[in-house]
């Protein structure tokens, strides 16, 4: 994957605008339960963890899916669910180590992040910059910069 949704947990304030926008874009509905990205809040820590698909190299959801509905595209790195094949057994929901794979009770099929076809709207609407859709090296570069600045400050 040339780009990924890079999450800076320390910047997230837990406003969950991303959840709302995601469910709106994909389902025409405002429902956190139908959002691909989910924010886990730890109110007593003031810490918020947005969770979205990691597009794993060897995704457990792909392995566990008994119907072959989830596939990883070797070229683009995309992990996608084919609703025609999905039998709705929710094994992917159980297998995903991040709790990302989600399930629509209405449609009876699983769903997951599709990066909005290349322009993720959660990132578009995230105002804190906790979510960024950037190439991996840039995300890491930003992290390195921040670490370096910290060292500089304390040094």
């Amino acid at each position: 994957m040339d780009k990924l949704i890079f999450i800076d947990y320390h910047k997230c304030v837990g406003c969950a605008t991303c959840e709302m926008v995601c469910s709106m874009v994909h389902e025409d509905i405002c429902s956190p339960a139908l959002s691909r990205i989910r924010v886990v809040r730890y109110p007593t820590e003031a810490f918020n963890v947005p969770i979205t698909c990691a597009f794993c190299e060897s995704p457990p959801c792909v392995s566990v899916c008994p119907s072959g509905a989830i596939t990883k595209n070797a070229d683009s790195g995309d992990v996608a669910i084919n609703p025609a094949l999905c039998i709705g057994c929710r094994q992917c929901v159980q297998a995903c180590p991040f709790g990302h794979a989600n399930f629509s009770l209405d449609r009876g099929t699983a769903f997951k992040c599709d990066l909005c076809g290349g322009s993720p709207q959660c990132v578009e609407f995230c105002w804190t910059e906790a979510l960024q859709y950037v190439p991996l090296d840039r995300a890491l570069g930003g992290k390195r910069d921040a670490a370096a600045r910290n060292i500089l400050k304390s040094g």
């Binding site: 989910r38 886990v40 709790g99 990302h100």
Partner: peptide
């Protein structure tokens, strides 16, 4: 089932982070 998924998100992935 949605509660189970939420719990998992909270108690494994999120907590590790």
């Amino acid at each position: 089932i949605s509660e189970a998924a939420d719990k998992k998100r909270r108690q494994t992935a999120g907590l590790q982070i």
